[in-house]
């Protein structure tokens, strides 16, 4: 038994550097594996829609004919299933977290007109 068992820790705190990361002013070094936000690279995508199939909350919608990839970041649970499913490496996990929005952007992402009309030779699993 003792009174003030924590007083030493408290006193030490007064004279040492606080544990705080001063976030908006000093960002901490990013952790490589960190799951922050899904990054989409439209150059590589073949619109195979495998990611849509694997997405647990159905945040990704792929229009194979219209070659449209859409992701709703306000639905994405950052599990990374789409990144694992993607054969072309067009989806990757960004370590930086997503920004807050003041308005919902439902289908917030890229629309891509078909650059080469070679049809959908999508690599189906």
């Amino acid at each position: 038994m003792g009174l003030g068992k924590l007083s030493f820790t408290a006193l030490k705190g007064v004279f040492s550097k606080p544990a705080t990361r001063r976030y908006p002013f000093e960002a901490r070094p990013p952790i490589a594996k960190s799951r922050g936000r899904i990054h989409f690279d439209d150059g590589k995508c073949t619109y195979c829609s495998l990611c849509e199939l694997k997405c647990p909350p159905d945040a990704i919608k792929v229009d194979r004919q219209g070659r449209v990839f859409a992701i709703d970041h306000l639905l994405c649970i950052l599990c990374g299933a789409c990144v694992e499913a993607c054969q072309k490496g067009s989806l990757s996990m960004d370590a930086k977290h997503g920004e807050p929005w003041t308005e919902k952007q439902k289908l917030s992402w890229h629309t891509e007109a078909p650059p080469k009309p070679s049809g959908d030779a999508a690599p189906k699993a």
């Binding site: 594996k33 960190s34 799951r35 950052l78 599990c79």
Partner: peptide, 14 residues
């Protein structure tokens, strides 16, 4: 921090 380093998430490990 250790969890994030090994799994990528802080509370949901996945």
């Amino acid at each position: 921090d250790l969890i994030e380093e090994t799994t990528g998430g802080r509370v949901i490990f996945g």
